[in-house]
């Protein structure tokens, strides 16, 4: 589904953010990307739907080369859902309008069709009563669930999560993770940048550990938590699991 091979990316002439990153996500697979901040995990996930350009290597998404100038990027991006750390709901649109905008403008669905789909997804994330509110009237956890629903409204073939719970209060994290766990159980292909090791150990198939722009470890979940091979991953794990 997602094939990342030998991706190199530089900011400016000298600072290399991604160093020869190669990995893949198969259909139905849940891959968690973790690592210290500044390790390039967010950048990597943003390269997958070309929100960030990269200079070398290639990424193939469902058979389509992302970094090919001939690729119709808006069309490709519409097929991949993305959830951001700061939710990024559109503040001037009501919740239901947030869910309808891209369905209508990108997929060309009728307004009624889009609303029906939106209602269904709001029900799924348990926010039906908030359909006519504005994003700022919702809590962080609720906003993030709306953001997930907004991405799902496009019927994506895969979902990218960029630290979806990092901006949330602890008590709101679980309501978002619950939605994500459900998605994973339904067989959604997911690439998740997160520090939530509980989520990783529960639903991930594989865990990728990044440090300083490199993929240091790319292992099955059991291997990663059981006995990470690299010293850096061991250190990282011992730090975040020690409390």
């Amino acid at each position: 589904m997602i094939e990342i091979s030998h991706v190199n990316k530089w900011y400016g002439p000298s600072f290399q953010v991604l160093k020869d990153c190669t990995t893949s996500v198969a259909k139905g697979e849940v891959v968690v990307v973790c690592g210290p901040s500044g390790s390039g995990k967010s950048t990597l996930i943003k390269c997958v739907n070309a929100l960030e350009p990269f200079q070398e290597g290639q990424i193939i998404l469902d058979g389509i080369k992302v970094n090919d100038p001939k690729t119709d990027l808006p069309k490709l991006r519409a097929r991949v859902g993305m959830v951001f750390q700061h939710f990024e709901l559109f503040p001037h649109l009501r919740i239901i309008e947030n869910l309808c905008l891209a369905q209508e403008k990108v997929l060309g669905r009728s307004h009624d069709e889009a609303v029906a789909k939106g209602d269904k997804l709001l029900e799924r994330v348990g926010l039906t009563v908030h359909a006519n509110k504005y994003p700022a009237e919702l809590s962080g956890g609720q906003q993030q669930r709306v953001a997930i629903a907004r991405a799902l409204a496009m019927d994506p073939i895969a979902m990218l999560f960029d630290e979806p719970t990092s901006a949330l209060d602890p008590e709101m994290i679980s309501e978002v993770l619950d939605v994500m766990v459900d998605l994973a159980h339904e067989g959604m292909t997911m690439m998740v940048v997160t520090h939530e090791m509980g989520f990783a150990s529960k639903v991930a198939h594989r865990v990728i550990f990044m440090d300083k722009g490199e993929i240091v470890e790319d292992a099955l979940k059991t291997d990663f938590f059981g006995s990470p091979r690299s010293e850096r991953a061991q250190k990282f794990l011992s730090k975040i699991l020690s409390h």
């Binding site: 069309k75 097929r79 859902g81 951001f84 990024e88 905008l101 891209a102 403008k105």
Partner: peptide, 22 residues
């Protein structure tokens, strides 16, 4: 926020649509 443009782009809106609607 920079993420607004990213969110619009990630949903498949073109640059023009992103400006117009978001």
């Amino acid at each position: 926020p920079r993420g607004q443009k990213n969110a619009a782009t990630a949903l498949g809106l073109t640059t023009a649509q992103g400006y117009r609607y978001v």
